[in-house]
Amino acid sequence: MSLVTLVGYPASGKSSRAAQLVASISKLLPPHLSAVVVSDETLNIAPSAYDDSRTEKPARAALFTAVQRMLSPTTVLIVDAPNYIKGFRYQLYCAAREMKLRVCTIYVVATPDLCHKWNDARTDGRAYSTATLENLIVRFEEPSSMVRWDSPLFTVPWNEELPTSDIAQAILSGSVKPPNSGTIAAVKAPTDALHVIEQIATATVDAIISAQAETQGSGGLVTLPISSELKLPISLPPRNLTLSELQRLKRQFVTVHKKAVTLGTTEKGAVDWTEQSVAHKFVTYLEEYLRS
């Protein structure tokens, strides 16, 4: 469905805004959809995890893993955490795009003095230490509507109402950006891909040699019986192709495609290593060479 990223200073009121948003959005959702909040609190990540980078990194990784697990076409997922690093917000954005979900960012704005005041007033054991709170405020990277991973951006000052109708429109009916090359997972070739390439290329060469013997080198369009179930047409030149020439072309073809298998080349996401596909690629490769 969508991913909503809350951004703001620690103790700026993000959790209150998340609760307001859930209450408002839930009324608009059909029964099969839901609004869910994932936060440091729901994951039992203590505020003290931000005291030191050695504990903050695994805490942030745990949050990101939870977000990936909870992203769903049937869920409005609200991430209630500091999210103060733009690189982390970009990670969240990429995860949502990979799932083809809508995204939006809500920037909850409060002054540092207010954040210190509200943090000191907490009695639930989830207050930040003064030094950690100040450090996070100094390191905070403000979101911008000019960058795609923070857009659409809703800036909500602490003393203003949450624009729930505009947010609802963005996350329920806004545009869905398709995954790009940076978010598409590489498609792995099957384990027998190399064997299929070698086997089909060899069978194709043998079929061409047999076809030339029957046509006596006259060329033209012939059908190659590559296997009992696979037959493909090919245009041969009006001359005999020698076995050494065909073997050389076969080696070139196999070498290129071995590299594609080894490196995980996705061919724009459409990898097909079936016998028919490999045979068609090899015949096309040969015809292009013979026309040149």
Rank of each mutant, 00 (worst) to 15 (best):
Y93D: 12
A131G: 00
L224Y: 03
F140S: 02
S48W: 02
E161R: 11
A46F: 03
A127W: 02
T266F: 03
L101V: 01
K250L: 04
K259W: 07
T75N: 09
L77P: 02
S39H: 05
S165C: 03
A201K: 02
K258E: 14
V38P: 07
R148S: 12
L162D: 04
K27L: 14
V36I: 09
A96I: 09
E245T: 08
L232Y: 02
P190G: 06
F253I: 13
A211L: 09
H257F: 15
K177F: 06
S34D: 06
P82T: 15
A203H: 06
W158I: 08
L153G: 09
S151P: 00
T155C: 05
L224S: 04
N180D: 15
D166L: 15
S151Q: 00
T255V: 06
P178N: 09
V108A: 11
D272S: 12
V187N: 03
I45E: 07
T65C: 10
G125C: 11
W273M: 13
D272P: 10
E41R: 15
V156I: 15
C104V: 00
L246G: 11
T130I: 09
S244K: 12
A189K: 06
S24R: 12
P157A: 01
R17D: 05
L230V: 10
T266E: 09
V278I: 15
K177I: 11
M99R: 15
S165Q: 12
I25N: 02
I137P: 08
I208D: 05
K281Y: 04
A207K: 02
